[in-house]
Amino acid sequence: MSTDRIIQFELARLNVHLPERQITLKEALSSPAPHVVARDGSKHKFERGELEFLKEIVPPSDWDSLRLPILIVINPKLGRGAAEIAGRPEVEVVSSVLKKEARGDEMVIYRPEVAVLRAKLPTTTQYLFMVG
């Protein structure tokens, strides 16, 4: 039975880094120390350089609707190595970083693309694991 408990524990731990609440790009840009608070109470800081980069590629009308960190949703149902991005402004950011055509509120990206995205935006993106 204890193996079940280890699995439960590991699954519960997968998402402790996620913020209690996301903040908008606008909020982040106007904060002297832009950060979110994770579920376990720890701080997660956004790097100024990334915010400046986002400011360049996101139209000002979307600064209020782009929510940070952008979530890279890992869902095993999509198959190994696939991830989802949800939300129109978020999809636009990701498609611009990856130079990959995308429309609408959702897009699916694959492992090499996740790597590019993570390299470009290490603090302003985060993984979310769909435990279901």
Binding site: T3, D4, I7, Q8, E10, L11, L14, I74, P76, R80, G81, R111, V114, Y127, F129, V131, G132
Partner: peptide, 16 residues
């Protein structure tokens, strides 16, 4: 089912 889910998700974590 639990072990399979654990395996799939932890493998994704490993890849990440």
């Amino acid at each position: 089912a639990l072990a399979q889910k654990g395996h799939d998700l932890l493998r994704e974590k490993m890849d990440a």
